[in-house]
Structures are given as structure tokens and as C-alpha cells.
Simulated assay, not measured.
Amino acid sequence: MSKRYNRFSDISTSEKILNTVFLLTIGLAYLVALINMYYTHQARDGKPGISIEDIVILYHGSNQQTRLGSAINGIMEPNLRFKSDKEVILKWIQNGAEEFTYKTDIAPILNRDCVQCHNPASNPNLPDLTNYIGVSTVAHAGAASLPSLIKVSHIHLFGIAFILYFIGKIFLLCDMNIYVKRIAVVIPFIAMLLDVLSWFITRWFSGFAYVVVLSGTLMGLSMAIQILLSIYQMWFYKKTSNLTL
């Protein structure tokens, strides 16, 4: 005789409410994260909106444009209090981004307009603009540094893994084909791991930027399906089943 496991029809209304508000909050947080990602990484190529070229510049770098130059021409330009400061920074980059002129010409601008967000305490995912070493890494053409990728990766893996686990635990209460369910709970984890791995590969092979986009999209879609299906079955689905886990 097969063992019977709990389904949404077996849990209390209080548990359903708790699960629902958790899933809705996670869904909203993910949408906000997407908006933040858009505004953080768009226009690196100097053009409005986010494109595959922006992803290439983020991880692989660009021979034509540095990360700081791309940001000053795009997303960071509105943050400058004086528009003339844009030309000061771009000229400094073109002249070799020397440390001496950084201290006299660039540091005062960045300290005034940029470091409130671009510092390790506020946002470890953004480049550190509080000192010359941090600014230099984005003022010269080249790929994202390995230390920065490792730092972002471990934060991403720890945080997202916990979220996927709790979403999956709730999703397991769905009444559906057990083999489909087993595959469904694994897909977002595989997509997350592929996404992070692709960051490092894109550093050397720019074409892998497409894998970054596709794996991130797969993870988001699989999360959305689990969330929506779980909420639907909690409140609207009546059929029960003796399927085993």
C-alpha cells in the first residue's frame, strides 16, 4: 500500500494564508529584483534599454568602452549633479585613468554623487567606487574580475537557494503527476547553477551571454509556475489524490 502524503486539501486555512502571503511576497520581490537589474545594467553599451551587449560588457568587458564609461554615458548620467562632470570623467578615462588625477578631479565627483550606492556596505553587487583600486577596475577596458564574480556568486547562491527551497516545499503539496513534480522542483536549481556558471564562462567567451539570459529566464519562469500553481491549488483546486512523493 502506498503511503499518503499531505496535499493542500489537508492543511489548515491558517497555513494556506501563511503560504500564500509568503509566495506573493517572494513573487513581488522577484519583480522588484528584475526592475533593479534593468536599471543597474541597462545602457552599458551607450544605448537605452538592456540588451545582450550590455550583458557582454558586464562580464566579458569591451574593447571600445570601459564599464565606467558605459555607465556614465547611460544609467549613471542622471545621478551626476553637474552635467559637465560627465566630460571630466570620460576625459580622465581616455587619458589613462591615472591615480594622481583621480584624487584631484574624479574622487570628489564620485564621493559626492556615487558612493552612497557604490560601496561594499550598501550594495556589494555594485562596483566599489570608494577608492582608486575599485574605480580603476571599471575605468579600464576588461572583463569582470574573478574576486567580484566570486563575491556576487556566493551571495546569489546562498540567497536564491533558500528561496527556491521554501517555494519547492510548498509546491510539493500540489496534487499532480509525481514525476512532473519531481522534475519541476529541480529545474530552478539547475537554472540557477547554470546562470552563475555562465557568468564565469562569459568572462572568457562572450557568446555565453545568451546562456546567462536564457538560464535566468528559465529560473524565473519555473519559480513563477510553482508560485501560481501552488496558490491556485491551495484555494481553487478541489480534486484530491493518493499520489506518492
Rank of each mutant, 00 (worst) to 15 (best):
L18N: 14
I35S: 15
P124Y: 00
S230R: 03
T104H: 11
G168F: 01
V180K: 12
H140P: 03
T244D: 04
L23R: 04
I163G: 05
A191L: 04
S222H: 06
T40M: 08
T104M: 13
I167D: 00
P188F: 00
N123R: 06
I170L: 05
K3L: 04
W199T: 06
I190Y: 05
A224K: 09
Y59D: 01
N63W: 14
L34K: 11
L197W: 06
L228D: 09
H156D: 08
N36Q: 13
R182I: 03
A33Y: 05
K181G: 02
V56C: 07
F171C: 01
S136A: 15
I231V: 11
S145T: 15
I231W: 02
I57R: 01
A184S: 10
K86C: 10
N131T: 01
R67P: 12
V21G: 10
V115N: 02
K103S: 14
Y165K: 03
D105K: 14
E98N: 15
L214C: 14
T130H: 00
E77I: 13
S206A: 15
L221Y: 02
A141E: 12
V196Y: 00
S145M: 09
C174H: 01
I201N: 02
V180M: 06
I50P: 05
V138I: 08
I75D: 04
N177Y: 04
P127E: 03
G74W: 05
I109D: 06
S51A: 14
C114H: 07
G207W: 11
V115A: 02
P147A: 07
Q64T: 15
V196K: 00
G61Y: 09
L90E: 03
I225F: 11
E53R: 15
L228Q: 08
I155S: 08
N63I: 09
G49Y: 03
L34T: 10
S145C: 12
D195M: 06
Q94L: 13
L243W: 02
